[in-house]
Write a protein that binds this DNA or RNA. Sequence first.
DNA 1: CTATAAAGCGTCATAAAGACGCTTGATAAA
DNA 2: TTTATCAAGCGTCTTTATGACGCTTTATAG
Lengths: 245, 245
Amino acid sequence: MEIKKIPNLSVDCVVFGYDTDTKSLNVLLIKRYLESKKEDEILVDDYVLTGYHVFENETLDESASRVLKELTGLTNIYKKQFKAFGNPDRLKNPKDLIWIKNENFNLRTITIAYYFLLKTEDVSIKNNVYKPKWFSINKLPELGFDHQQIILEAYEDLKIKCLQDPIIFELLPDKFTINDVQDAYQSILGIEIDNRNFRRKLINKKYIVSLDEKQVGVSKKPAQLYMFSKDVYDKMFQKNYLISI
Amino acid sequence: MEIKKIPNLSVDCVVFGYDTDTKSLNVLLIKRYLESKKEDEILVDDYVLTGYHVFENETLDESASRVLKELTGLTNIYKKQFKAFGNPDRLKNPKDLIWIKNENFNLRTITIAYYFLLKTEDVSIKNNVYKPKWFSINKLPELGFDHQQIILEAYEDLKIKCLQDPIIFELLPDKFTINDVQDAYQSILGIEIDNRNFRRKLINKKYIVSLDEKQVGVSKKPAQLYMFSKDVYDKMFQKNYLISI
DNA sequence: CTATAAAGCGTCATAAAGACGCTTGATAAA
DNA sequence: TTTATCAAGCGTCTTTATGACGCTTTATAG
């Protein structure tokens, strides 16, 4: 059975991975490389997001999940479709034209951009055929197509979203310390938070559940471990309609 | 010069219009009607959003603005791209198939959905070739394609957005009373707000500017008129990073 | 056994939000 | 001219959330 691709429609996936140890929000990218055989000249040498054409028989969401699974092997990862990119000139800089010609792409391609949230360590980049690489959101390499723009817009959306919804826990391990959560917020938002106030605020939330466990293998006073209870959160459904304009 | 349409890509526009008098949030829809000539049977009789195929040489944003302008004559209206809809089966219920065949549409069409915010009275629906009609968001008619879903998702996005950004003023006339703003919030969010507290809060905002003018032609104590100063708002740029999870 | 540094508790001040009583004032009806 | 009406608009009190910051606790390294 042959699967038919829609030639002018693709999904692109911004895979955000948070590393609790280095406190770094990272993006997973794959290399794009092409050299001229005659002249021994490097034509394309940069990084891009993973993406692929949408198949005729799949939804956009399925398409994005498929791309993520092929890259990482992971399923059931937090996913958000955040924007469609489709300017007529979005793939028309010289390097992209060379690349597209090489890959037989269609010129005017609309891409539906998604972002995913996971833990950096959950992806095994060793022995991965795509040779993906993590880059800190603050130190992105040279990017192909309009992928820099896509990543930055995904990041902006993520910043707003993490203030409203408990998506921060998608980036953290199941068991975490209060400081882990604080570090994650600080890394993503680029702000400093007072630890004592943050601690009080979080501990008072009913959906932040204290475990009978502490950190092990740390050289300082070990911290209390907590988990996030999505059940409790959903039951509270604390849509506090606070008009903050 | 011929303009080439992209056959499988369209934009759809959810036009939200707020009516200050009736305190109603409305959606602008156009009728879809088709009857069988032989059997005198009504094949399609419902409403749809305005939308059209994207042209080869225009951006998605331009495409949406073009559709809005053709329908309403208006430009420079608040616009937001909020989601792409592209399920393989999104246009496959019987009525849509009949309609599509009639209109020579492509089957698997991805649509980039936008919503616009304006005042109901700014659109002249008399003598309009599209015969558009306003429907309250709470009393939508039977809708074609997947347009009910698109409208409801636009509405959800609008609800969240209006809590964070001063887009409420896109829906109100330039000069408004405090109660106008409150009514708009109440209509959109479906909540009750205490007038005295709301009034205090709003009047204290520096970007809510009191005018030397009052309501005229009302049979009760006329209310003070205000305007929204986007300049002041932008200068403050009060991105209060309040983590409200 | 002592220094270290993070974990964690407590206090105070300030600001925002919610509840609600009461006054003001323009108009229409008496 | 007076009076009833009703929304506009002001003020007060309480509660809660937040921010700033001092201080104690505790496990480990040296």
